[in-house]
């Protein structure tokens, strides 16, 4: 008995005492572990977000170019001017197009990976999806610029196949067309689709893996065709993954300013507008107001998704 008591009462330094304290008060342990991340999130993320919001309610003095630190909605009003509103609409439509296309392209790939690929094939799938994410974003985009240029491989391939008339027809469509793919909206769209596709494939694949096989079999057993099974069972159950993926592709497209800078027309997207207004133009309030737009769009999107019950199965 005494020996046991001796072991227990032996002082074991400051760390020992701290460890004892943590054991007695588990709340303290959690607080210690979380304090750093919470400080980081609180100050760096929420703080800068709040500053951004604040800035967007200031305005710029048209004569002196100085920021007037008085609350006003004047800057938001400027967003509605035809030139600025075009930027917002253009970015929004591009994000919609990229997201919808990404969902359609990602689903079959993710379905194959989740249902049929096994072992080595599955590893290969992950590698193929992730590999582009491991190389520099800029390098990929410049590579695409070369691929899509008039002297590029796409043009060459199309003309070798004798399909130049198709590409020319596409490029002569007003608005989305242009001199070559690399200076048209089609090009911007293709490259955005390429860079954000992995962010759609991975969550959809994860969601599809969680759909139990026996539900698919139950549907077939009860008389459902493969199409009906896909429509009534598989897609609704994979919806959380599709929503998660679309949040990625949609918000990443809304905020991107490098792809449209390098590939596409000279007409701006939201990201480019933010970049230009906070830089050379020195119009921080307008830049901030532009930056709030994707946040608002994403909030509305999430709210609609939640109301539709798409997030219930998360």
């Amino acid at each position: 008995m005494t020996a046991v008591a001796a072991v227990n009462s032996k002082t074991h330094g400051i760390w020992g005492r701290i460890s004892d304290l943590m054991w007695r008060k588990p709340g303290l342990l959690v607080a210690t572990l979380l304090s750093l991340p919470i400080l980081w999130l609180g100050i760096i993320y929420l703080g800068s977000l709040f500053t951004l919001l604040l800035q967007s309610f200031y305005s710029i003095d048209e004569f002196s170019g100085m920021i007037r630190r008085e609350f006003t909605l004047k800057t938001y009003g400027e967003l509605l001017s035809p030139a600025n509103f075009d930027i917002i609409l253009r970015t929004f439509l591009m994000a919609c197009a990229v997201t919808i296309s990404a969902a359609f392209i990602a689903f079959p790939i993710a379905y194959y990976a989740a249902r049929y690929a096994r072992g080595r094939l599955k590893a290969l799938f992950y590698l193929a999806v992730m590999l582009p994410l491991w190389s520099s974003y800029l390098v990929k985009i410049y590579a695409w610029k070369l691929i899509l240029a008039k002297e590029g491989i796409v043009n060459w391939l199309v003309s070798e196949l004798g399909l130049s008339f198709l590409l020319n027809a596409l490029l002569s469509v007003p608005v989305i067309g242009g001199n070559s793919l690399s200076v048209s909206y089609v090009g911007t769209y293709l490259v955005l689709l390429y860079v954000w596709l992995p962010f759609m494939i991975l969550p959809v694949q994860a969601a599809l893996e969680r759909v139990p096989t026996n539900l698919i079999e139950a549907s077939r057993d009860l008389g459902g065709t493969q199409r009906q099974t896909l429509r009534i069972v598989i897609i609704p159950l994979a919806m959380p993954g599709i929503i998660a993926g679309s949040i990625f592709t949609f918000s990443l497209t809304l905020g991107d300013f490098i792809v449209p800078q390098i590939i596409g027309t000279s007409r701006r997207f939201i990201g480019q507008a933010v970049y230009a207004h906070q830089g050379t133009a020195g119009n921080i309030p307008l830049a901030a107001a532009f930056a709030v737009v994707p946040i608002v769009i994403m909030t509305i999107y999430l709210w609609v998704a939640k109301r539709q019950g798409a997030l219930d199965a998360l």
């Binding site: 079999e217 077939r220 057993d221 609704p236 159950l237």
Partner: peptide, 18 residues
Amino acid sequence: PNRRPVNTVFQDYALFPH
């Protein structure tokens, strides 16, 4: 399976959760 005059009660019931 969908055109056989047979139906199954699965081991873990396989009810559609949605």
